[in-house]
Simulated scan of single mutants.
Amino acid sequence: MLLVAALACPATAAQAPDSRPVPATNATGPAAPPYADLADLIQVSPVIADATIRSTARIKGAEAANVPAGRQRLYVTADVGALIRGEAGLPPRIGYLLDVAPDARGRIPNLKKMRVLVFARRVTGVADQLQLAGPQAQIAWSPAADSRVRTIARELLATDAPPAITGIGNAFHVPGALPGEGETQVFLQTRDARPVSLSILRRPGEQPRWSVALGEIVDEGAGPPARDTLLWYRLACGLPAQLPDTSVSQLGPDDAARAREDYRVVLDALGPCTRSAR
């Protein structure tokens, strides 16, 4: 399995590599990594390139001193086919460091001519050298992966992109006139202080319905976000597993219990924030 090192070029000071595993690749091209993995990477990658590996060279000596046991460091040279994200462009050929794990026979994977998507940062003062952005910062190219990366990049750069969730504010519950009827509203804290809230509505004999508002006005008809969209990612990967006690401190015991139940409705509907093993 390929292991990505968050490193600069051989001429720069080496940084500790990230030795967490990334999905294995094959000749036919793997499925795209989970949405959350890609969104994590794209957010921290000023440069995203579609490239084809031209050559690799094993790195030894001091520049490979911090390579994890059982792995080997390569210097990768790749030809850029397309720049998906990045200001000021890229030269036709780039280089970066990559740690790999040999196969069962001790052989290094043959990466030559492999088409990849590279998520990286620029190395200051060296135009053709990149520093990989972190786990899974090089993945095998496939139509599915390319399409998903471009979609997420567009969503993240949109002016109306939903903000990152940093915590939970106050929660309120208002019982209805009929048994089993009521509404819960949960206010979320965001990185840029934009208002985001969840509304959960219960009516007798019906399944609970919930919606998310990206502003002051609640649109109960908006419905939950579709899975594998940026809004889904912000909620599924940003919400805590339960309402903090501070969020329901102003509610009576019954209303607090119902608010927690309604919050669980949202989490269950969103499903898990699936990431690959790291």
Rank of each mutant, 00 (worst) to 15 (best):
P195V: 10
C237R: 11
I84N: 14
P68S: 09
A8Q: 01
Q136M: 01
F187Q: 06
D99V: 04
L188Q: 06
A31V: 01
A57W: 05
V266Q: 14
L157S: 14
A24H: 10
T246C: 07
A177C: 02
L156S: 05
S211H: 12
G169H: 15
A127P: 03
R227Q: 01
D50Y: 04
T56Q: 13
L201P: 03
T25M: 11
T25I: 07
A32Y: 02
P143R: 08
V218M: 13
G61H: 11
T274G: 06
L2E: 00
L90D: 12
D146C: 03
Q131D: 10
G61T: 06
G106T: 00
L178G: 04
I200N: 10
A27K: 07
P34L: 02
F172L: 08
A256W: 07
V212I: 14
Y96A: 04
L231V: 04
D18M: 09
M1E: 09
A13W: 02
Q72Y: 04
R278T: 10
D50K: 03
L41D: 08
A13Q: 05
Y96W: 12
G95R: 02
R260S: 06
M114Q: 12
V186N: 00
N66S: 15
S276N: 08
A62N: 13
A62K: 15
S147M: 09
G125C: 05
E206Q: 15
Q189H: 13
L130I: 10
V4D: 03
P21F: 02
A62F: 15
L3T: 08
C237S: 12
R73Q: 11
A153D: 12
N66P: 05
V4M: 07
D18G: 15
E181H: 14
L156N: 07
A57R: 14
P224F: 15
E220F: 02
I84D: 14
G125R: 03
D146Y: 09
A164Q: 08
G70V: 10
A69Y: 05
I53W: 12
G89K: 07
V265S: 12
P68Y: 07
Q131P: 05
I217Q: 08
S247M: 04
R105G: 04
D160Y: 08
S197A: 15
G205K: 09
A13Y: 03
G238M: 10
E87N: 14
A62H: 14
G180Y: 04
T124N: 15
R20F: 06
A236D: 09
T184H: 06
A69G: 08
L111T: 04
A88Q: 06
D37T: 14
R264S: 13
R194E: 01
A144E: 06
V126D: 04
W232C: 09
I59T: 02
V196F: 06
P244N: 11
L97Y: 11
A133W: 03
I139R: 08
F187W: 06
L270V: 13
V265Q: 14
I84F: 10
Q136S: 01
A27G: 14
P30S: 13
G176F: 03
A140I: 00
L83D: 04
G205H: 11
E216A: 12
T124G: 12
G252T: 01
D50H: 11
D192W: 10
Q15M: 10
A31R: 13
A161L: 06
R20W: 07
D192E: 15
Y233S: 01
A104V: 03
R121A: 13
L83M: 13
D99N: 10
A13D: 03
G215R: 00
S249T: 14
V212R: 04
R93H: 10
A256E: 07
D128I: 02
